[in-house]
Design a binder for these strands. Structure first.
Length: 848
RNA sequence: GCGGAAGUGGCGGAAUUGGCAGACGCGCUAGCCUCAGGAGCUAGUGGGGGCAACCCCAUGAAGGUUCGAGUCCUUUCUUCCGCACCA
C-alpha cells in the first residue's frame, strides 16, 4: 500500500524533468509542430492564482499535444521593462535591474513548482541587452522604411507616472496603469506608422476564425474605419484659405448651414489674429483646450462654441456660412473640421439650437420638403434628398457617390477613408526601457546608430527622481556622442521605447532565442510560427494583440516571415476573483499558489483551476473546491494502488484479446472509449477543459462501481485484512478491461495532474516516463452503443421508452417498437402511428 | 446611444447537430466503517403531490415553429463586457 503524497511526487518528477531536459525541443521537419504560448509575464514579484490559471491552461494544451505526437514548443519569458520597477526605485532606491532579476527568480521558482512544462533553455527577459538590441535594430529598419518617424504632437500625458501614453493606454480618460486623468502636452515624439496597415489589420480580422468574436469586434471598433469625403470650404473673401472638412454624409451638404473647427485646428490661431478682438478670442479657445479631454470626448462637457466672425463658402450651395470654433470637434480626427448639418446630426442640432443657427431639412423619408419647425431632434436616417439642387429626389445612397464625383471634378473634394486608429507614439520619458537608438547632429540631423554599435545599452547609473524629464538626459556620458556620419559632437536620444514594443515580437525570438546576427533566423520562425495556441487576458485585446499583428506585417515586409497573422488561435482566459474582486496586492485578497502547493500539491491546484469553469470564464476562488480536486486525485491513487495490490501484477498486454465479455465488462470498455473521445475533443477542439475533467471523474466513478461488484472487493476496503479477503482477480477479461480503463485514465490525466499521473504510471510497472507515452487510442466500435433507448409518445407525450439499434430505420421500428415493448409493458400491442428518423437515426416513436 | 456575450438547483457549472434538463464537483442529509473523525465508502439531494409503482410543474418572462425546444423564430425584461459628441 502506498499513500498519496503529492509533495513528494512534485519534487521527484520536477527534478526528473529538469535533469532529462524533458521539454526542450529542436526543429524537426519530420514531425508536425505545435507552438503553444501563454502571454509572458511582467515580473511583479509574485504570481497569484489568477496569473497561474493562464499558465496551467497552456500547459494542459502543450502536454496533450506532446502526447498526441506533436513537436511542441512551449517557452516562457519575462516582459521585464516597465514603470513599476522604476517607480519602486524612486521610492526605495533599489535599482530596477536588481529588483527585476530577483522577482524573475522568485516567479520562475513558482512556475517550476507548478510543474509547467516550459522549455526553460529558451527563457529570456526583455531587459537583456541581447534582446532589446533587436528592438533597436528593428526600430532602425522601420526608420529606414519610414515606418518610424518623429514629429511634434499633442500627446497624452500622465502626470502621476510622468510619461507619455499611447492612445491605446488611455482608458476612460485616465492612465491605464494608475487611472490618473490624462493631460494633453505638445512634445517631439517618435511614432510607428501603424496606420499604414490600418486596412489590412481591419480586413484580416475576417481570417482570424479561431479568435473570440469579442476581441475581433474590439479591434474592428478600435481601428474604426469610416468612408466619406473631404470637402473644401473656401473662406469668404479669401479663396486662398480653405477649410477642409471630413463627412460621411455628403448627401446632406445642402443642409450645412455652418462650419465648425476644433480648438486644435491650425487655422484657429490665424483667424484669431485676424479677428477684431483677438485677445478674448484666443482666451476662449484656450478654455476649450484646457477642458478635460475625457469630458470633452465623452459628451459630459456642455457643447460650447465661439463665432469667429468669418464665413466660408459652401461649395455646393455657394452660400456663405458662419465659421465657429466648437469644443466638441476633435482636432485629431478627420481633418479637425466639420460641416455642420443641424437637421441631420444630433450634435449639430443641439449646437444650432443653442446658438440660434439655421436648421435646414435636406433629406426626408418621402421626398417632400419639410420645415425644421417643431423638430425635437436631428433626423439622421438615410432618405430622399430635398432642397438639394439637381440632387433633389435622389436617395442618400445614390447621391453620395455622385456628389463626391462632382466635388472631385470641381477640385474641391474627394472620396476618402478615415480611421479612428492613430499612429503609435512610442517615446517614453523614463529610464527602464529600451533606449531609442538615434543621434541628433547639428549638421546631419537625425542619424541612426550604426548596426555594429548596437545595442545602445542602458547606462547602469541613473538618478531616479521621478521628475518627469528623461533620466537618461542626466547621464552626460550617455548623451554626449559623436555623429556617426560627420564625427562631430552630437546628442543621443534620451527617451526610451514603450514597453509594448518589447512584447510585440517576443514570440518570434522564442523560435531562436540566442541568435546574435538577427532578431531570429527566418528558417526557425518558418518552422515554428505562427503560434498555434495563444492564451492570455482579454485586457490585451486592443493593445498587445493589435501591436503584435502590426509587427508581424513589418517583419513580413522586411522579408523575414512569410505570414501576416502571428497567432492562429487565441484564448482569452477569465480572471480569478476572490470575494468578488480581482486579486491584487492592494486589496489584500491574493491567493498565493505556494501555500496551496504545500497543502495539496501542484496537481490538486492545477486540476481545480481547470475544473471549476470553462477557461474563458471568470471564476470565484474557493478553498473547498480545491479540496474536492485533492480528494479526486487521492481517490484515483487508491483505485490504482488497490488494483496493483490485487491484480495489476498480472501481465496482461492489452484489451484487444478480450472475448466473451460480461455485460458489465462491456459497459466499462464502452465507458473507457467514450471518455477517451470526450476528453480528446474537449481539449483539442473545444478547449472545454472543465468538462474534460468531469468526464474523467465519471470514468473513475464507473471504475469504483465496477470494482465493488467484482471479486476484487473494491478499493473502498482499505485494511490489509480486507485485501486478503478480497483475494485476486482471476478472470482474465476483467483484468484486461480494467487495466485498459486505468491506463487510459492515467494518460488523459497527465496534462492536468502530471506528477500524480507519472507516479501512477510508475506504480503500474512502466519503465518509461509517462510524458513520453502516447495518448490513448479511441475505438469507435467499442464506444458505440448496441442499443439505444428511444422515447415512445402517446398523444404528444412521452409515455415510455424502448431499446432499439441506433441505426434502425422505419420499417424495423414498427416491429421493434412492439417486440421490445418489454421495457415499456403498458405500450405492448399499441399501433405505431409514426416513426421519427433524423439523419438516419431513430429519435422517437409515436403511438396512437 | 452603438456593438458583443449571457440569464439553467443552495453554489460553480453540464447538456456535439433540436432528442431522458440539472452530467461532474462543492455544500447539505442519512447510513456504514471507526476509540474517534474534519478520513473513507454507500445512498439521497430542482419544486409539488402520492404508502407505492408513478404523476404534475420547471432552464429570466410572454408568444410561436416542431412528434419533440435550455437549444430555432418573434416580442420583452435583466445582468455583464467593450466602444462612445469619430462628423
Amino acid at each position: 500500500m502506498a499513500d498519496y503524497k503529492p509533495q513528494e511526487l512534485d519534487k521527484k518528477w520536477q527534478q526528473r524533468w529538469t535533469s532529462t531536459r524533458a521539454f526542450e525541443v529542436a526543429v524537426d521537419p519530420s514531425r508536425p509542430k505545435y507552438y503553444c504560448l501563454e502571454m509572458f509575464a511582467y515580473p511583479s514579484g509574485h504570481a497569484h492564482v489568477g496569473h497561474v490559471r493562464n499558465y496551467i491552461i497552456g500547459d494542459v494544451m502543450a502536454r496533450t499535444k506532446r502526447m498526441r505526437g506533436y513537436n511542441v514548443l512551449h517557452p516562457f519569458g519575462w516582459d521585464a521593462f516597465g514603470l513599476p520597477a522604476e517607480n519602486a526605485a524612486i521610492k526605495n532606491g533599489i535599482h530596477p535591474e536588481v529588483s527585476t532579476r530577483s522577482n524573475i527568480a522568485h516567479m520562475k521558482g513558482q512556475l517550476q513548482r507548478l510543474g509547467i512544462s516550459y522549455a526553460w533553455e529558451r527563457e529570456f527577459a526583455t531587459c537583456d541587452p541581447t534582446y532589446y538590441k533587436w528592438n533597436q535594430w528593428l526600430f532602425i529598419r522601420m526608420f529606414e522604411k519610414g515606418l518610424a518617424y518623429r514629429r511634434k504632437s499633442s500627446v497624452n500625458w500622465c502626470p502621476k507616472d510622468n510619461t507619455v501614453l499611447a492612445n491605446e493606454q488611455v482608458v476612460d480618460g485616465g492612465c491605464w496603469r494608475c487611472g490618473t486623468p490624462v493631460e494633453t502636452r505638445d512634445l517631439e515624439q517618435w511614432f510607428f506608422r501603424i496606420t499604414a496597415y490600418a486596412d489590412e489589420l481591419l480586413d484580416d480580422t475576417a481570417t482570424l476564425t479561431k479568435w473570440p468574436e469579442k476581441v475581433l469586434t474590439m479591434q474592428r471598433n478600435w481601428i474604426g474605419r469610416s468612408e466619406g469625403a473631404k470637402v473644401k470650404f473656401a473662406l469668404e473673401g479669401d479663396s486662398a484659405t480653405q477649410i477642409e472638412v471630413f463627412t460621411t454624409r455628403i448627401d446632406t451638404i445642402y443642409g450645412s448651414t455652418f462650419v465648425m473647427l476644433g480648438p486644435e485646428h491650425p487655422l484657429v490661431r490665424e483667424l484669431a489674429e485676424r479677428s477684431r478682438d483677438s485677445a478674448s478670442f484666443r482666451a476662449q479657445v484656450q478654455t476649450f483646450r484646457l477642458q478635460d479631454r475625457a469630458a470633452r470626448v465623452s459628451g459630459e462637457q456642455e457643447k460650447q462654441g465661439i463665432d469667429t466672425g468669418f464665413k466660408a463658402i459652401n461649395p455646393f450651395t455657394k452660400e456663405a456660412v458662419p465659421v465657429w470654433v466648437a469644443n466638441f470637434v476633435l482636432g485629431d480626427y478627420g481633418t479637425g473640421a466639420v460641416m455642420a448639418v443641424p437637421a441631420h446630426d444630433q450634435r449639430d442640432f443641439e449646437f444650432a439650437r443653442k446658438y440660434n443657427l439655421p436648421i435646414r431639412v435636406v433629406v426626408t423619408e418621402d421626398g417632400k420638403p419639410r420645415s425644421s419647425d417643431g423638430m425635437a431632434e436631428a433626423a439622421d436616417a438615410y432618405g430622399l434628398l430635398v432642397n438639394s439642387g439637381e440632387y433633389s429626389g435622389l436617395s442618400s445612397e445614390t447621391a453620395q457617390p455622385r456628389m463626391t464625383a462632382y466635388a472631385n471634378t470641381q477640385g474641391f473634394g474627394a472620396g476618402t477613408v478615415q480611421y479612428r486608429l492613430k499612429d503609435w507614439g512610442i517615446s517614453r520619458q523614463r529610464y527602464w526601457g529600451t533606449p531609442i537608438p538615434m543621434i541628433y547632429c547639428e549638421k546631419d540631423g537625425i542619424v541612426p546608430v550604426p548596426d555594429d554599435q548596437l545595442p545602445v545599452e542602458l547606462p547602469k547609473v541613473a538618478e531616479f527622481t521621478g521628475r518627469g524629464d528623461s533620466p537618461l538626459a542626466q547621464v552626460p556620458e550617455f548623451v554626449k556622442v559623436r555623429c556617426p556620419k560627420c564625427g562631430e559632437p552630437a546628442r543621443r536620444e534620451t527617451d526610451t521605447m514603450d514597453t509594448f514594443v518589447d512584447s510585440s515580437w517576443y514570440f518570434y525570438r522564442f523560435a531562436d532565442p540566442t541568435n546574435d546576427k538577427l532578431p531570429f533566423d527566418p528558417a526557425a520562425v518558418k518552422y515554428w510560427l505562427p503560434v498555434d495556441f495563444y492564451s492570455g487576458g482579454v485586457e490585451h485585446a486592443i493593445l498587445h494583440l493589435i501591436y503584435s499583428r502590426f509587427f508581424a506585417r513589418v517583419f513580413r515586409d522586411l522579408g523575414m516571415v512569410d505570414h501576416s497573422e502571428p497567432f492562429t488561435q487565441l484564448l482569452t482566459q477569465g480572471m480569478v476573483l476572490k470575494d468578488g474582486n480581482v486579486m491584487s496586492k492592494s486589496k489584500g485578497n491574493v491567493v498565493d499558489p505556494d501555500s496551496m502547493l504545500q497543502k495539496y500539491g501542484a496537481d490538486a491546484l492545477r486540476l481545480y483551476v481547470m475544473f471549476v469553469a470553462p477557461p474563458e470564464k471568470e471564476v470565484e476562488w474557493t478553498d473547498a473546491g480545491l479540496e474536492g480536486s485533492f480528494r479526486f486525485l487521492a481517490r484515483v491513487w487508491r483505485l490504482v494502488d488497490h488494483w496493483v495490490e490485487t491484480a495489476g501484477g498480472e501481465g496482461i498486454e492489452s484489451a484487444d484479446s478480450c472475448e466473451d465479455l460480461t455485460p458489465a465488462e462491456k459497459q466499462l470498455r464502452r465507458k473507457t472509449h467514450e471518455t477517451i473521445q470526450r476528453v480528446t475533443t474537449d481539449i483539442e477542439q473545444r478547449q472545454q477543459l472543465n468538462t474534460a475533467v468531469s468526464a474523467m471523474m465519471e470514468l473513475v466513478n464507473e471504475l469504483y462501481a465496477f470494482s465493488e461488484q467484482t471479486v476484487t472487493g473494491g478499493p473502498s476496503r482499505r485494511t490489509d485484512e480486507d485485501l486478503e479477503h478480497a483475494g485476486s482477480v482471476e478472470r482474465t477479461q476483467t483484468i484486461c478491461v480494467v487495466r485498459e480503463a486505468i491506463e487510459a485514465l492515467i494518460r488523459m490525466l497527465a496534462p492536468f495532474a502530471p506528477h500524480t499521473a507519472e507516479g501512477l504510471w510508475e506504480m503500474l510497472g512502466h519503465e518509461t516516463d509517462l510524458q513520453a507515452a502516447t495518448w490513448p487510442v479511441f475505438d469507435a466500435d467499442v464506444a458505440r452503443a448496441e442499443t439505444i433507448e428511444v422515447p415512445v409518445q402517446v398523444n404528444g407525450k412521452v409515455r415510455g421508452r424502448i431499446m432499439v439499434a441506433p441505426d434502425a430505420a422505419d420499417e424495423d421500428m414498427r416491429q421493434l417498437a412492439l417486440a421490445e415493448a418489454s421495457v415499456a409493458p403498458h405500450l405492448a400491442g399499441k399501433t405505431v402511428k409514426k416513426v421519427v428518423v433524423v439523419k438516419g437515426r431513430l429519435v422517437s416513436v409515436v403511438v396512437a
